[in-house]
């Protein structure tokens, strides 16, 4: 019984990781690839880690706390890493693949720059 659950978790994990990699290959720009990488792959690996944890807990009666710690760590760091990479990519001027799409951030940045310039000219006077 427990073997079936572990097998299902393993298959889900492997499938999600593989689909995430296909997403990395197929998406047209960095931001889309980040979506595929940090979520499908992360969930897949977490599923595999749960399978390993259950395997050692129920079949060998060993409670491996480090595996749980790894799950927590991956969960905590995946969004932070994605945030850093996307921020760096945007700041270095990597454009989205579709030029006509919605971009609120560009508008906000332009306004911010305008305000800065105004303040500078005011202080000069």
């Amino acid at each position: 019984m427990i073997e079936i659950i572990i097998s299902i978790l393993l298959l889900i994990g492997g499938g999600l990781t593989f689909i995430g990699s296909i997403g990395i290959l197929r998406f047209p720009d960095v931001y889309g690839r980040l979506h595929a990488a940090t979520k499908s792959a992360t969930l897949g690996v977490i599923s595999i880690m749960f399978a390993t944890f259950f395997y050692f807990w129920f079949i060998h009666d060993i409670f491996v706390g480090k595996l749980l710690l790894t799950i927590l760590f991956v969960f905590l760091t995946a969004p932070v890493a994605a945030f850093m990479v996307s921020k760096a990519a945007y700041n270095t001027g990597i454009k989205m693949s579709d030029k006509n799409s919605q971009d609120d951030l560009a508008i906000a940045m332009r306004e911010h720059e305008k305000k800065n310039k105004q303040e500078k000219s005011n202080s000069d006077v």
Partner: peptide, 29 residues
Amino acid sequence: PTIADRIVALDTTGINLIGFIGIIMILQD
């Protein structure tokens, strides 16, 4: 095409390695 793409792919490689070793743990007991 860009460095950011390479960073993303390297990060995912690292995450995948974790799962890889997890399965090897099951196989080698």
